[in-house]
Design a protein around this nucleic acid. Structure first.
Lengths: 109, 109
DNA sequence: AAATATACATTGACAGGCGAGGTATCTCCG
DNA sequence: CGGAGATACCTCGCCTGTCAATGTATATTT
């Protein structure tokens, strides 16, 4: 079930941008690589998430000054984005504990 | 963000039914209690999930023989349900590792 | 008689993920 | 030169799972 990913794309992207500014294509590769190829954001998801995060004021974008190759839109995390990231990480820790507890399905003796 | 829960209701329910047959209302309370009140399935979600799992052959239902009080529809996990549960648990372990890795957003030195 | 708890169920809205499709640039190979 | 493939961006529309709202019925408590 790949809708486990639901609700994490935001945080995953924010985590990457926390390291350094990045652009869609690169960020996507970084995520794929960091997850050992197990998880990759789909382009449609990636870009709609960028839009969402930007209009929420969690990231901001600017065009790179490539003199060659395709243009790149870079994204940077904002202070609001950092706050959201911290909150989401805390939520993740809590959630993890809850699910771990709930998934201890043990049969009757 | 409560759409972290997305994709786990199935597994949570299956985990409960693995312990013993149960019915909606009771199962719901059990989950709420087990999670320390931090997570509760909404009734609409609960019942639509029952429908989904049943038509997928992962659970089966039967009416309780209450002589008093409201009628109860009990659910039991099937072999298919057990298989799904095992699979989902494995997925959860994998997913947990991936997210933990990805959320290590460290700033540049 | 009314409120509360138990117990089940459906409808319709909403949001996020994503398949499919599209644009443009640059490099490499034959 | 032409075509394939990588880089790089973007959008439309569908699908699916969650959930607020609403409704039913029974039993107990006040």
């Amino acid at each position: 079930m790949s809708d486990m990913i639901r609700g994490y794309t935001d945080t995953i992207i924010l985590a990457q941008l926390l390291r350094h500014d990045s652009y869609g294509y690169e960020l996507n590769k970084a995520v794929a690589q960091a997850s050992g190829g197990l998880l990759e954001l789909k382009e449609a998801t990636l870009y709609t998430t960028f839009r969402r995060l930007e209009s929420a004021g969690c990231i901001r974008s600017y065009w790179g000054d490539e003199t060659t190759g395709a243009r790149r839109r870079y994204y940077a995390i904002t202070e609001l984005g950092r706050a959201l990231y911290r909150e989401n990480c805390a939520d993740w820790q809590t959630f993890k504990t809850i699910i771990d507890t709930l998934l201890q399905g043990e049969e009757e003796p």
